[in-house]
Amino acid sequence: MRKRSVGINVRVTVTEKKKVTMLARKCGLSLSEYLRQRALGYEPGGHPPKEVFDVMDKIDEIAESCQPSAGTKIAACADEIRNLLIGGN
């Protein structure tokens, strides 16, 4: 069951809505979640650009082509970097 049952209506200009929608999308959040987080004092972070993930995929390919012990270390480091970039644990 949905816990949130009370709405808050805010009037904005078309330009303001486009800007806030873009910022929410950049963070990977819905417009409602983005506004909720901002209103509650959180500053959501943006996702890295697609090129960052392309580079991480290339590092994974390199790790797979290395000697097993080196490949395991490279893969572990790549996982650590990936988690830092996307907010993993």
Results as ranks from 00 to 15, higher is better:
residue 23 L to N: 14
residue 74 I to P: 00
residue 66 C to D: 01
residue 87 G to A: 08
residue 26 K to T: 03
residue 72 T to M: 13
residue 40 L to C: 07
residue 1 M to H: 11
residue 20 V to Y: 15
residue 49 P to L: 02
residue 6 V to C: 06
residue 65 S to T: 01
residue 48 P to R: 15
residue 72 T to S: 13
residue 24 A to F: 04
residue 83 N to H: 13
residue 20 V to S: 11
residue 69 S to I: 05
residue 21 T to K: 15
residue 61 E to R: 06
residue 21 T to L: 15
residue 66 C to T: 00
residue 8 I to N: 09
residue 60 D to H: 04
residue 85 L to I: 00
residue 62 I to M: 01
residue 4 R to A: 04
residue 79 D to A: 09
residue 30 S to W: 12
residue 29 L to K: 07
residue 28 G to K: 06
residue 61 E to W: 05
residue 6 V to L: 12
residue 25 R to T: 04
residue 58 K to V: 00
residue 14 V to F: 15
residue 23 L to V: 05
residue 73 K to V: 02
residue 7 G to L: 14
residue 11 R to M: 14
residue 35 L to C: 15
residue 65 S to I: 00
residue 42 Y to N: 06
residue 26 K to M: 13
residue 81 I to P: 00
residue 27 C to F: 12
residue 9 N to P: 03
residue 20 V to R: 15
residue 11 R to C: 05
residue 75 A to P: 01
residue 41 G to S: 01
residue 72 T to L: 13
residue 80 E to R: 12
residue 46 G to A: 11
residue 38 R to L: 07
residue 17 K to A: 03
residue 44 P to R: 09
residue 26 K to L: 11
residue 7 G to C: 09
residue 74 I to N: 01
residue 60 D to I: 00
residue 48 P to K: 04
residue 58 K to M: 02
residue 14 V to D: 12
residue 51 E to P: 01
residue 69 S to G: 08
residue 85 L to Y: 05
residue 27 C to D: 03
residue 73 K to N: 12
residue 9 N to A: 14
residue 41 G to H: 05
residue 38 R to A: 08
residue 56 M to T: 01
residue 10 V to N: 10
residue 30 S to T: 12
residue 15 T to F: 10
residue 50 K to L: 05
residue 69 S to R: 13
residue 85 L to A: 13
residue 44 P to M: 03
residue 80 E to Y: 09
residue 64 E to S: 08
residue 79 D to Q: 15
residue 14 V to N: 11
residue 40 L to E: 12
residue 42 Y to W: 10
residue 7 G to M: 09
residue 37 Q to A: 04
residue 5 S to F: 05
residue 72 T to G: 07
residue 31 L to I: 03
residue 7 G to Q: 11
